Simulated scan of single mutants.
Amino acid sequence: MTYNSIPNPSLQVTKDHTLEIKEAPVERPGAGEALVHIKATGICGSDVHFWKHGQIGELKVLGNCVLGHEAAGEVVEVGEGVTNVKVGDRVAIEPQMPCGKCFLCIQGDYNLCEEVDFLSVYPCHGTMQRFRKTKAATLFKIPDSMTFEEGALCEPLSVAYHGIERAELELGRGAMICGAGPIGLATLVLANASGAAPLAISDLSAERLAFAKKLVPRVKTYQIDPKLSPQQNAIGVRKLFGPTEEDAPPRVLECTGVESSIVTGAYIVRRSGTLMVIGVGRDIINNFPFMHLSLGEVDVKFINRYHQSWPAVIRLISDGIIDVQQFVTHRFPLEKADEAIKLSSDPKNGSIKVIIEDQLRVL
């Protein structure tokens, strides 16, 4: 079957920071590849950042690039040698395609591969289009009980999963989450499933904290006061856990990447604890409290995306251990993807996760 006769609309960002709905070519799968009909794509903050600013760190938009990397869909064609998926399979897509040859890939840390192709990072086109060819090894089958939206949400959940895994959360040990955006909320539901207790979350927005409380009723919330210093806000957060140093959370997961939030997290975590920075922020942070962390022997860790998380996250969703359907606050058809990203980019709209859907039946 040929798909060249079926329109393939896509949302593309240009090097001039504009958005275009354009017809994209349909690439046929070669050996080890599969063609996927993208049924759902979530909008990530990085999509907005590439549009608004044209780069994230060293990653620059130097020409037209299709956005989107949180995706799920149906396999419509497979190339030679593909055995892990077949036509008609419902799949979630891991958006990174590492080289598979460097020492990092060989030791299992393929998310750190410097030769990785990542969907929606120029020049590698993303998933805000009807059809996308990709390596079959990046496709993971999802059961019929899961929606394509839930399949797309495996990507932000994988970010949170990797952070929680590296932070080594423990049953009955306290954990603090800084930031109630999509990644913070994903971290919250997974931290809840891990049995971390007590559990608390902070944010500037009362609305987002209310949303967090709806997701996990037992979570304690703290609204950050921007007029207070990081140390003062940290004192307020610590009161949620108890009056002593021992009561302070041994694990703090920072999910915003904002300098003031990272510094606040550094003052929240107790001595001999772990500050896990999940959020992505500025290249250089000037006010990092080095000696405070050093004197407390606090481990400071970071993540870069994820690895080997899709099977676990799919099981967590399909077995009902976590409920992520509530994350989706807005839905748009593929043909209105530009409207979707514009809504997502404005905090006043109160979106948590905006999903771009394609309802066309191909198979």
Rank of each mutant, 00 (worst) to 15 (best):
M1P: 14
Y3C: 08
I6Y: 09
S10Y: 03
D16R: 08
E20C: 13
A24M: 13
P25A: 09
P25Q: 06
E27W: 10
E27C: 04
E27S: 12
A31E: 14
A31C: 05
A31R: 13
V36E: 00
H37L: 11
A40D: 02
T41G: 00
T41C: 15
G42T: 09
I43Q: 01
C44D: 00
C44L: 08
G45Q: 03
D47R: 01
V48E: 01
G54A: 04
L59R: 13
G68Q: 06
E74S: 07
V75P: 08
V76E: 02
E77S: 12
V78P: 06
V78M: 06
G79A: 06
T83K: 15
T83H: 13
V85P: 08
Q96W: 05
M97F: 08
C99H: 05
C99F: 06
G100R: 01
G100L: 05
K101I: 11
C102T: 07
F103W: 10
L104F: 11
Q107E: 14
Y110I: 01
C113A: 10
E114I: 11
D117K: 15
Y122R: 08
Y122M: 08
H125L: 00
Q129C: 13
Q129V: 11
R130P: 10
F131Y: 08
F131K: 03
T134H: 02
A137D: 13
T138Q: 14
L139N: 03
F140N: 09
T147A: 02
F148Q: 05
H162A: 06
I164C: 02
R166C: 03
R166Y: 01
L171M: 14
G174R: 05
I177R: 03
I177F: 07
C178W: 03
L185D: 06
L188P: 09
L188H: 03
A197W: 10
L199P: 12
I201N: 02
I201P: 04
I201K: 04
I201R: 04
I201E: 04
L204K: 00
R208P: 10
F211E: 01
K214Q: 11
K214P: 01
L215E: 07
L215S: 05
T221H: 06
D225I: 07
K227I: 01
L228M: 12
P230H: 07
Q231W: 04
N233I: 06
G236L: 00
V237I: 15
K239N: 10
G242H: 03
T244L: 12
E245V: 09
E246F: 12
P249E: 00
P249Y: 06
V252L: 07
V252N: 00
L253C: 11
E259L: 09
S261W: 00
G265H: 10
Y267T: 10
R270G: 15
S272H: 14
G273A: 12
T274I: 15
L275R: 06
M276G: 09
I278T: 12
R282K: 14
D283E: 15
N286F: 12
F288C: 05
P289M: 05
D299H: 10
D299M: 12
Y306E: 05
Q308F: 01
S309D: 09
S309G: 04
W310C: 05
W310Q: 05
W310S: 01
P311C: 06
V313F: 00
I314H: 04
I314P: 00
S318T: 15
S318D: 11
D319R: 15
I321C: 09
V324F: 03
F327C: 05
H330M: 07
R331D: 04
E335T: 14
K336P: 02
K336R: 15
K342H: 11
S344P: 01
S351I: 00
V354Y: 02
I355L: 08
